[in-house]
Nucleic acid binder design. Structure first.
Lengths: 248, 248
DNA sequence: ATCGGAGATAATGTATACACAGAGTATTCT
DNA sequence: AGAATACTCTGTGTATACATTATCTCCGAT
């Protein structure tokens, strides 16, 4: 009931957007599949007007693609698109790290980042890593990335990073990941954690170029891991693979 | 009349979007000023529904900002925001140049770029440069940047560059520029032309790192020039200054 | 005189009705 | 029987009417 109250406080448009995004990311609609407004109305329970607004926003977000003759379809990403997007995000985050280092952040600003990393350490050090721990990790990792972006103190850059992270494989959807993938996921987590510590250190010491280089290398490594994962498994369940790489 | 026919072929939403963007970029509305739907309806001549769609798209584009209590306002950019955006665009274009060099483009792919640069040469070599020549230059320069982005063959990156270029100071709004600024604008044009030639050369020779570095340096120089221009003139007419830098 | 509250007004958010375009199917003609 | 055309039906694009919320003003009380 309280939940219902909370839902009522946000606009129908936002509710529709969240519901539709959830539907798309969870794989309820296949890439390339058309999403009709009527269908969206049934799913979300709101009228066509807010649904249309939500669809436009999801298109701008990159999850949907406008069909020339009208309407929208779920955007399909090639493997190359995904790998490029990861490198793209890494490049932007590298710029953010450089900005943070060059603009001179106080050690007080870095405190939240370090705390975030410590919390992650508490999760990934123990073995084997549980499904719940992995979920927590994904959330914490996302928080770290947000904090790093904000450290740049550059609204345009933060905005662009947000957009680059809006794609499914950059969203905290780790819960889709298969149990069997957990062990190797943990390896990636540990390496990523190391990278993050180096970045914080570089920023603290005002080494802009080094901070930037690390973030870019970090993304390239993540892309490489994803490519390997895609080679080993079938191409079928791309979404879990995307969730996996979101840990990077 | 034929124009009227052509207008009728595109949707009301697109027409509204174009009209409103023109209004904002031309300075018809001051930054921070609220834009009411009623006002937008009067300006565009279409109904509220397509107007709302256009407003949402312009928000995603970065020209408008949503007001928490409802509605939209023209987004205000600080000087730092603008400088950061230029460097951001340079970083993305640098990545595009590197992709182009590393993925191996044929010299046939580079032909349109070279032709574009030759056309620009024909415009800027003669002195003094006229207002018409400058307008032509801005259009050609925009084409060069689009061609370079496409050379990366990376849809996600192209998309992101498009968005980074959607802001006013990256749009071909050079016609606003004052006559008096033309001479120094020409200097920037010539330097930019040199940079572009180097980039094409680097891509042709598969030197990814060099191609990327040049584009980033190019953007940094453009940012520096803008900063100087803002110091010399008053802060008042930022739009002409933004037009000036769009030449970079 | 100033602050607070209540009411009115205007603007946004939402819903629905209508118009038009496109696709699919059925029927008719060759 | 096959193909072409016409008709229907589904779905998007647009307009407008309604509801809700926020802001501004005015009046009253302290």
């Amino acid at each position: 009931m309280a939940e219902r109250e909370a839902e009522r406080s946000v606009s129908q448009t936002v509710r529709a957007q969240l519901a539709l995004r959830e539907l798309i990311v969870s794989g309820g609609l296949r890439p390339g599949e058309r999403i009709s407004e009527l269908q969206a109305v049934e799913v979300t329970g709101v009228s066509r007007t807010p649904v249309r607004m939500a669809l436009v926003r999801l298109e701008e977000e990159g999850l949907l693609e406008a069909i020339p003759s009208g309407g929208f379809m779920v955007k399909a990403f090639s493997e190359r698109d995904i790998l490029d997007s990861i490198e793209l995000r890494g490049t932007l985050e590298g710029l953010a790290a450089r900005f943070a280092a060059e603009r001179g952040v106080s050690s007080r600003d870095l405190e939240p980042l370090k705390q975030c990393l410590d919390e992650i350490d508490g999760l990934v050090r123990r073995e084997p890593i549980s499904m719940e721990a992995f979920s927590s990790y994904v959330a914490l990792n996302a928080r770290f990335h947000v904090l790093l972006a904000e450290l740049s103190r550059s609204p345009p850059l933060i905005r662009q990073i947000d957009r680059a992270s809006a794609l499914p494989f950059a969203s905290p959807s780790g819960f889709v990941m298969a149990q069997s993938a957990l062990p190797e996921a943990r390896q990636i987590l540990l390496i990523g954690q190391d990278h993050h510590r180096v970045v914080v250190d570089a920023i603290e010491n005002r080494e802009g170029a080094r901070a930037e280089a690390i973030m870019r290398e970090h993304a390239r490594l993540a892309a490489r891991n994803l490519r390997l994962a895609l080679r080993n498994r079938t191409h079928l369940d791309l979404l879990p693979a995307m969730a996996l790489i979101s840990a990077g």
